[in-house]
Amino acid sequence: MATPTMDKLEALEADSASSHLIAVTFRIRRFNPEVSADASWEDFRIDIDPKERVLDALHKIKWDVDGTLTFRRSCAHGICGSDAMRINGRNRLACKTLIKDIVSFDKSGAVSKPVTIEAIKGLTVLKDLIVDMDPFFQAYRDVMPFLVTTGNEPTRERLQSAEDRERFDDTTKCILCAACTSSCPVFWNDGQYFGPAAIVNAHRFIFDSRDEAGEQRLEILNDKDGVWRCRTTFNCTDACPRGIEVTKAIQEVKRALITRRF
């Protein structure tokens, strides 16, 4: 994939000095309850550097073409988790997705298909690409994502061996972008399911040797809307922009529940 695309790009660049820009159509699913009860697709065709990101394209559209386009973003560098969206049917961060990686070219070197952008699925759409994240964060809060200890505060740091730290290293990377939870078909159909992100963040503390509420969190996830609803589809692992092995973390929680060892 990458090589032919780069060849085309280099050929394009050789053509003329200004033509490092390519014309891309962004097909964005829009919804504005103040205007219509229905969502609809709208095309924006703009010239953009293929090395820029989808977020840059959204900025260009919002700043130069249509100021009513509404989306969340904050850090623009893959840290805050604000801009998860469905790009060409897959959940990604707009700020981590390069145009060149998602457009395809036809024989003449022109972009052959529009790039589709829509809000993440399974959460209430409020406007354009903005969804109501409350149910997502409710599930997060419900797994107690904080350190729980008993006894007196130690006077120095709580020590932990490198091996113990390693057990939950992967799940510390979560930025709560909801890409995983909103890629899960179980969650799409039933938002009562805790969803992968909540389980990832429970895993973060269940397997932390310094934490003492592992049993409690396991009991919470033993619920009928807990880990047992996971059907191992791996959508979450594919979606995670941080490369967290989400499905593996969920399986580790299942195993801990069965063996009661963690």
Partner: peptide
């Protein structure tokens, strides 16, 4: 207009464990 709701959402009233 009413927003486009997702099915069966979790709220803080969702029964706990």
């Amino acid at each position: 207009a009413p927003v486009i709701e997702a099915p069966r959402q979790r709220t803080n009233k969702t029964p706990k464990a």
